[in-house]
Amino acid sequence: MSQAEAGIVGAGTARNPLWTFGILRSELATTLRRWRTLALLGVLAAVPVLIGIAVKIETNHGSSPGPGGGGGGPAFLSQVTNNGLFLVFAALAVTLPVFLPMAVGVVAGDSIAGEANAGTLRYLLVAPAGRTRLLLTKYASVLTFCLVATLVVALSALAVGALLFPVGEVTTISGTRIGFGEGLLRAGLIAVVVAASLIGFAAIGLFISTLTSSGIAAMAATVGMLITVQIVDTIPQLSGIHPYLFPHYWMSYADLLRDPVYWDEAVKNLGLQGLYAVVFGSAAWARFTAKDITA
């Protein structure tokens, strides 16, 4: 084994730099072409449609501006009827706590454990890529899925919002007005920030995935972890540790809708996600590179 290793390293110096993208591309293709992944994306795309139609029906019946009149319900819902762009923010607010991370948890939890479960992991390792590189590729494809999933929600919401509701100048939550173009720009930025909010959770999923050879167990553990942490995040007695929990600053993407943009919490969020990515990414590396691959 160690001779083979030396051979790989020797070959590595002359390797085409695009080669890594080769694994990544095949990895992405397998991940995104799966029926399961497509079904997850379909569910995510359906959420804004559901919200949009519900709000539309509600406003058609009563003239009052929807159920959000009392301030209840998800964020931004009360503004959807007046500006379709707000459906993007409302849909992200609805999907970010549960649907998005659940989908990411499924994909991340399955990334290594699923291969082990299906008995394909050893064949992946036969390819002269090395375990670290394989792990990085897996993580990159999970992160790509985060972005794709978020964009699916955002674009579906934008389409539904533009179809069912008027669009135009956007009133920021600070009460000032920005043009529709800038509103779109901010919506895109928000989608990227939301996707980046999932970086830490994706790393946790990847780590859990290296611990077991059962894909289902890894997915369940990852999603269970998410639910546990979110419950802990709501217990006021534990407020001391709240700032260190990965979902704590998730809703900070809304700060991008203030005028001027309030970056403090969003930056904290990104820093925290980076920290989680490094800690759990390196833990996954420690586990995966030292693990006996039996399947």
Binding site: G68, G69, G70, A75, S78, I173, S174, G175, M251
Partner: peptide
């Protein structure tokens, strides 16, 4: 303005106009 979770409450004074806006409830 009071920054709230995904919402903001603003009190704006400009000349003889005073506006207050609660973005949560619009």
């Amino acid at each position: 303005s009071i920054l709230e979770n995904a919402a903001e409450y603003s009190l704006i004074h400009n000349g003889d106009q005073v506006w207050a806006y609660d973005s949560r409830t619009n």
